[in-house]
């Protein structure tokens, strides 16, 4: 085989996928009406808009503290209740603990729940309960089940079956097997996944705030609505600090758990 022929054969496998990808992208752009003109024109306007944000309105700083705290509390309570519910559903969704009917029904529920975005749940809850933090907490709690419920159920299915057997061999019932045999084994995973979910919930809490749960997300949306860009920029700074801060905190705690061997 000549070098030229070899090179052609080597790159040939990329040609067809690239052509398909380009065709699909072009098709999607035509259907959505997205053009390069819009992109480049928008970029220019975006830069101008960023200029309008400066400087932030530091006078609005004190009035942002309360909504910022509200956003953190919504995320915290949502994660707390959500993780507790997730443990319950995970126990029902694990094949080594629940009977096949219960397991399959719970897995189905978890999958359906995962398919519904938190914002959609919130809109439904707002229709039922009205605006406020409570629907936000419930939406985030329910949102946790889809992710944590599945992850924890998979972890439970992977635990040492012999340990369960040893609990049963001393006459332990199902509840005792769970408390003494299952939960201690999955505790590091519960903590790690919950911290990770808290990190996600902080971001979602900002988004849900804008949809109707209140908090810093609402302040951002309201300021943009009132064309008060300097105030909006103050809210953005708060959001960046909260998101970055919780991300770091969650990362630090998860790393600490790992270093102490709790995850191994």
């Amino acid at each position: 085989m000549r070098l030229k022929e070899f090179k052609f054969k080597r790159y040939r496998k990329f040609i067809l996928p690239s052509v398909i990808l380009l065709a699909v992208t072009e098709g999607a752009a035509i259907i959505c009406g997205a053009t390069f003109d819009d992109l480049f024109g928008g970029l220019g306007r975006g830069v101008l808009f960023l200029g309008n944000l400066f400087p932030p309105n530091w006078g609005a700083f004190p009035e942002m503290l309360d909504p910022a705290l509200k956003t953190i509390i919504i995320a915290f309570l949502g994660t707390l209740f959500g993780s507790l519910m997730s443990i319950f559903f995970a126990l029902l969704a694990a094949s080594n603990l629940a009977n096949p009917w219960v397991r399959n029904a719970t897995r189905f529920f978890i999958a359906v729940e995962r398919a519904i975005p938190e914002a959609v749940i919130l809109i439904l809850l707002i229709a039922a309960f009205g605006l406020g933090a409570m629907p936000g907490v419930v939406a985030l709690s329910l949102g946790c089940i889809g992710m944590l419920g599945k992850l924890l159920a998979d972890v439970i299915e992977g635990i040492d079956p012999l340990l369960i057997e040893s609990m049963e061999s001393v006459g332990g019932n199902k509840a005792q097997v769970i408390v003494f045999g299952v939960l201690p084994q999955i505790l590091p995973n519960i903590i790690s996944y919950t911290l990770f979910r808290f990190d996600i919930n902080i971001r979602l809490s900002v988004l849900l705030g804008a949809v109707g749960a209140g908090g810093i997300g609402y302040e951002l949306d309201y300021s943009f609505g009132m064309l008060d860009y300097h105030r909006a920029f103050t809210a953005m700074i708060f959001i960046i600090v909260i998101v970055f801060g919780t991300e770091r905190l969650s990362y630090y705690l998860r790393k600490k758990i790992k270093m102490e061997g709790a995850l191994t």
Binding site: D160, L162, L163, E165, S166, S169, V170, F180, G181, P184, Q185, L187, A262
Partner: peptide
């Protein structure tokens, strides 16, 4: 019962 692999809860 005493098992070959001890079957103890390592985190307790």
């Amino acid at each position: 019962v005493i098992f070959q692999g001890y079957h103890l809860v390592k985190r307790l």
